[in-house]
Amino acid sequence: MTTSAIKPLTVLFFFLAVSLRGTNGEPCGTSSIQVQTINTGETAAGGDSVFEVQVKNLCPCSVRNVRVDGGGFATTVGVDETMFRPVDGGVYLVNSGEPIPSMGAVSFRYAWDHFFQMTPRSLEVDGQC
C-alpha cells in the first residue's frame, strides 16, 4: 500500500473509533439517547393536550439507568411509573432503570397545556459492548 492510501485509512479508522467509543473512551454517552415528544392530537378530560414521549437508544450497546431532566415536568393524567418516574429534583428515571436495547425505545404519555423539553442526563452502558 502506498503512503497516500494509508492516510485516508488512518483517518477513517480514527473516525470510526471515536464515533463508536466517544471522545472520552466510553462506548456511549447522553448524546446517544434521543428524546422525542409529539402531540398526539388527543385531549385529556381537563382539556389538556396529550403528548407521547419516546426515549430511544441510538447507542450500539444496550443501556440502563437512563435518566432525563424533566424540564419542569407536570401532568394532569397519571404516567406509568415503570416507564417514567421522578428520582431527584426534576430528574426522572426511564424504564425503571431496566435495559433499553440498541435502537430500542420506550414511551409514555402525559397531558398538559404545553410540552416539556426533556434532555438526557445520564445512563450506564449495560455490560460489555
Rank of each mutant, 00 (worst) to 15 (best):
residue 37 T to C: 08
residue 68 V to L: 15
residue 63 V to D: 02
residue 75 T to Y: 09
residue 79 V to L: 13
residue 63 V to C: 00
residue 57 N to M: 11
residue 74 A to S: 15
residue 78 G to C: 08
residue 62 S to W: 02
residue 65 N to E: 15
residue 70 G to C: 06
residue 67 R to E: 11
residue 37 T to V: 14
residue 22 G to Q: 03
residue 72 G to Y: 04
residue 37 T to N: 12
residue 51 F to R: 01
residue 43 T to E: 09
residue 63 V to H: 01
residue 51 F to A: 03
residue 79 V to H: 12
residue 68 V to M: 12
residue 69 D to K: 11
residue 52 E to V: 04
residue 49 S to W: 07
residue 77 V to Y: 05
residue 76 T to S: 15
residue 52 E to Y: 01
residue 78 G to D: 15
residue 62 S to L: 01
residue 64 R to M: 13
residue 66 V to F: 00
residue 52 E to M: 12
residue 47 G to D: 04
residue 79 V to I: 15
residue 56 K to H: 06
residue 62 S to V: 01
residue 39 N to R: 04
residue 44 A to S: 14
residue 49 S to E: 11
residue 29 G to F: 01
residue 34 Q to D: 14
residue 50 V to Q: 03
residue 53 V to P: 07
residue 46 G to F: 03
residue 54 Q to W: 00
residue 78 G to F: 15
residue 52 E to C: 04
residue 39 N to D: 14
residue 54 Q to V: 10
residue 44 A to T: 08
residue 41 G to V: 02
residue 61 C to L: 09
residue 73 F to R: 04
residue 24 N to K: 09
residue 78 G to M: 14
residue 31 S to Q: 11
residue 79 V to R: 12
residue 47 G to Q: 08
residue 62 S to C: 00
residue 24 N to H: 08
residue 22 G to P: 02
residue 49 S to K: 13
residue 35 V to T: 12
residue 29 G to E: 00
residue 48 D to W: 02
residue 37 T to K: 04
residue 26 E to A: 13
residue 27 P to D: 04
residue 60 P to M: 12
residue 66 V to W: 00
residue 68 V to A: 11
residue 80 D to R: 07
residue 57 N to Q: 06
residue 36 Q to N: 12
residue 74 A to Q: 14
residue 77 V to R: 12
residue 82 T to M: 00
residue 72 G to E: 10
residue 28 C to G: 02
residue 79 V to Q: 10
residue 82 T to L: 03
residue 21 R to F: 12
residue 23 T to Q: 12
residue 22 G to T: 05
residue 48 D to G: 05
residue 61 C to H: 03
residue 77 V to G: 03
residue 36 Q to D: 14
residue 54 Q to F: 08
residue 24 N to R: 11
residue 30 T to D: 06
residue 47 G to V: 06
residue 81 E to R: 07
residue 80 D to M: 07
residue 48 D to S: 10
residue 30 T to C: 07
residue 39 N to M: 06
residue 62 S to K: 01
residue 50 V to K: 06
residue 34 Q to L: 13
residue 65 N to Y: 10
residue 21 R to D: 06
residue 21 R to N: 14
residue 68 V to G: 05
residue 68 V to C: 10
residue 38 I to V: 13
residue 48 D to I: 01
residue 38 I to M: 14
residue 58 L to G: 00
